[in-house]
Amino acid sequence: MQDKQIIDLYWARDEQAITESQRSYGGYCHSIAFHILYDHEDADECVNDTWLRAWNAMPPGRPNRLALFLGTITRNLSLDRWKGKRAMKRGSGELTLALDELAECVPDKNSTEDAVEAAELERLLNEFLHTLPARDCNVFLRRYWYVEEYGEIAERYGMKLNTVKTSLFRTRGRLRTFLEKEGIVL
């Protein structure tokens, strides 16, 4: 079933929308959740919660790209669950590694400045991503949006593992420079 039809089912409050979402995007959403949580049971729960969130969001929402809309919901739910698990010192996985890497991007602080607002940080990140060559941007997003492993990214784009690592290393360096230039405090 096409996205438009699935969205129409949500709008019609037809529960078939959930079934069709699961059929079309269940695997996709599960993959996103699993990369973050590294636990199938937790990933399944996040995916189920995704359909509930989507049900509440449509209407009035009518996303242009349903896959990305659902994927973003799943990602946010997964991050929240991960934070909860982390507080209880449970779980592991690729996200821990990804966070260690992103810690390199945290700019040096000027203690007199206030931390940037979330919306502003989102805007700046978008601005930064648009400055990147397509390949570097894709690799960055696969690593830090989808939390994919280096090997998965290398296979996806037909790159060598070290080329992926080099690309990410440079992009993280650029991000740090960009955030420092913008005077960002996190």
Binding site: T72, R75, N76, L79, L95, A98, L99, L102, C105, V106, A118, L121, E122, L125, N126, L129, L141, Y144, W145, L175, L186
Partner: peptide
């Protein structure tokens, strides 16, 4: 940063 990427 990771959370802010949700709004990419």
């Amino acid at each position: 940063i990771l959370e802010a990427l949700s709004a990419v």
